[in-house]
Write a protein that binds this DNA or RNA. Structure first.
Lengths: 112, 112
DNA sequence: GTATCATTCAACCATCTGGTTGAATTTAAC
DNA sequence: GTTAAATTCAACCAGATGGTTGAATGATAC
């Protein structure tokens, strides 16, 4: 599986996106991370492992505690990949915009 | 499932990302779309449906032919979501960069 | 050293996924 | 109107996913 595959797949789960969001506030232990979630610690632990495999989380052990840290580079790759298509979301959003855009045609082949 | 969930999940598959890329060159029929892929037409058809459900592809029928069109807005949502974390991939890429960055500390809590 | 805390490992389960094949549907072609 | 084309639908299958519970591991506390 490619790194992009892994990153996209990891972020497809809302629990894992919440974990990513949580990690912006700094390192957390697995147990603390799991607290606000309505699922077992084991389930959260598995989610963390998915994020780790995607390179989105780094872990460093300190005794029996595992501290988790955000690793954002895969997010940059995702932004880069998706940004290729920027010109496609700026154009032809819906019929109204087509109308409003009116004569301001751009170079792309137009179809509806 | 949220729209972000669906978009991330849809893009986690390399075949579907190839389909998205292909659609930037304009509309295609399902059959033509399927040609370069080493899988059955049915498999491609299913991939297209996943992209449709995620709002990344629009279909309009013209007789018995289904023309597929890229819908890029969900990609914009993904870029928006991931870009929240930009500050996290610009900082502390690895130990070397930390060293090179040297005294140029920023406001975020530092941990390793 | 024994009890306890933080975490993972392992097994299990239901559901989803990505592929297949074969039949059905709808439209075009002759 | 029969044949053929474009596509989906349906059933099936193997493997992944997201959750559970219970046991194992490893470090701390006392």
């Amino acid at each position: 599986m490619s790194t992009l595959d892994l990153a996209f797949a990891a972020l497809a789960d809302p629990t894992r996106r919440r974990i990513v969001a949580r990690l912006t506030r700094g390192e957390v232990r697995v147990t603390d991370l799991a607290l606000p979630f309505q699922m077992s610690l084991n389930a959260v632990s598995k989610h963390v492992k998915v994020l780790e495999r995607a390179g989105l989380v780094r872990r460093h052990r300190h005794g029996r505690e595992h501290y988790l840290q955000l690793r954002a580079l895969p997010l940059r790759d995702i932004v880069r990949w998706a940004s290729q298509y920027e010109r496609f979301w700026n154009q032809r959003l819906d019929a109204l915009e087509v109308f409003l855009a009116g004569t301001a045609a751009d170079e792309e082949k137009s179809d509806d």
